[in-house]
């Protein structure tokens, strides 16, 4: 009796997951086809890549370098980051004077409107957000699942070209809010945590030809496919924790990252020495004890992997047009 009930629940759960998966490409596809009213309330100056491209260059960018932070699949909205992410960005920002840090980009929608914005299931996401704020995290898995499917959409060769065009526009909007002038050639860095890594590489497909500026990407436990966007990435720094099994998903799930396909965008970037893997020590994918927040155990042992990660990221950001080397980094061989 109980077994049958559990099986029924599992069945219903599986159907719901399949349904979420089937519907996941429709948001970006509908946006591209003009089915949604996403652009209707959008400020004219902050538009899609096309708007950026056609805009006349009237001045110089306000900062000498720009950093855009793309959160992981647990993100709810651009204006809602976890407190450890905020602390991390605050520390980074304090160490890179003259660099503007964009931290209000929601990388899992076409309009930077978070899950609690004007959406069909707004109330559901708001309810989950409220639970999350009360540290009741079970339902947050729905957010993870929703955004995980969006990462899969970005990595899919059928949907990716459209999805990544949308997120490129969202990132451009963020850059412009901080005073970036298209065509100025000012270098910028995308920092992607977890699924944000794939979004960063996907968006580089269009950010490259639009901005014609050096793009470097830093990923923290980044999950990435063999995206064509790698062609436009000057250098990728992949920080990975020894206890983080999630970041290896991209390597396992996407054939283009296997050594047997040497002409995939990932393997070409590897062969050209444009990918550096940096071991951050025995950290996990999620915090505490992950990339941002020290765990109690790490505190007790006096281990400061997170601080060391920040130091290295600062070093990379301060050298946006060079390749920064670290003593214990791993330069992957082609096909690794």
């Amino acid at each position: 009796m109980i077994f049958s009930f559990i099986m029924q629940l599992l069945g219903i759960g599986l159907i719901l997951i399949l349904l979420m998966g089937l519907l996941s490409p429709l948001e970006s596809m509908g946006w591209w086809a003009g089915w949604s009213d996403v652009d209707k309330d959008k400020p004219k100056v902050a538009g899609t890549p096309k708007d950026q491209e056609t805009q006349e260059i009237t001045g110089q960018s306000e900062a000498g370098h720009y950093v855009v932070y793309l959160s992981g699949i647990g993100a709810i909205a651009g204006d809602f980051l976890e407190k450890e992410e905020i602390a991390f960005l605050d520390k980074v920002e304090a160490c890179v004077p003259g660099t503007a840090v964009v931290r209000d980009v929601f990388p899992y929608a076409m309009n930077n409107k978070g899950l609690t914005g004007h959406r069909t299931f707004r109330s559901l996401w708001q309810w989950i957000k409220d639970l999350k704020l009360k540290n009741k995290l079970l339902m947050s898995n729905l957010i993870n699942l929703r955004n995980l499917f969006q990462v899969a959409v970005s990595a899919d060769r059928r949907y990716g070209p459209i999805y990544n065009y949308g997120t490129a526009g969202v990132i451009l909007d963020g850059l412009r809010r901080k005073g970036y002038v298209v065509g100025s050639g000012i270098p910028f860095t995308l920092i992607g945590y977890s699924g944000g890594g794939q979004i960063a590489v996907g968006a580089a497909t269009y950010l490259g030809p639009i901005l014609k500026a050096p793009i470097q990407i830093i990923t923290l436990g980044g999950v990435m496919a063999d995206d064509p966007g790698f062609a436009n990435v000057r250098h990728l720094y992949q920080f990975h924790g020894e206890k983080d099994p999630v970041q290896a998903l991209g390597k396992v799930c996407y054939a283009g990252r296997w050594p047997i396909l040497p002409h995939s965008p990932w393997n070409i970037a590897l062969a050209e020495g444009r990918i550096t893997v940096i071991d951050v020590g025995p950290t996990t994918h999620n915090d505490p004890g992950g990339y941002f927040l020290q765990s109690e155990e790490q505190k007790a042992k006096g281990e400061h992997y997170q601080d060391r990660t920040i130091d290295r990221i600062v070093e990379i950001i301060n050298h946006p047009t060079e390749v920064v080397s670290f003593s214990d980094e791993k330069q992957l061989a082609a096909g690794a």
């Binding site: 591209w32 003009g34 899609t48 890549p49 096309k50 491209e53 056609t54 060769r157 059928r158 949907y159 070209p161 459209i162 065009y165 497909t205 269009y206 030809p209 639009i210 064509p228």
Partner: peptide, 21 residues
Amino acid sequence: SPDKLIETIIEQTIDNPKGGK
């Protein structure tokens, strides 16, 4: 087919924005 979609999007919206979205 989606194979040439990136090239098409770049051509329509970046290289030749008047033909774009």
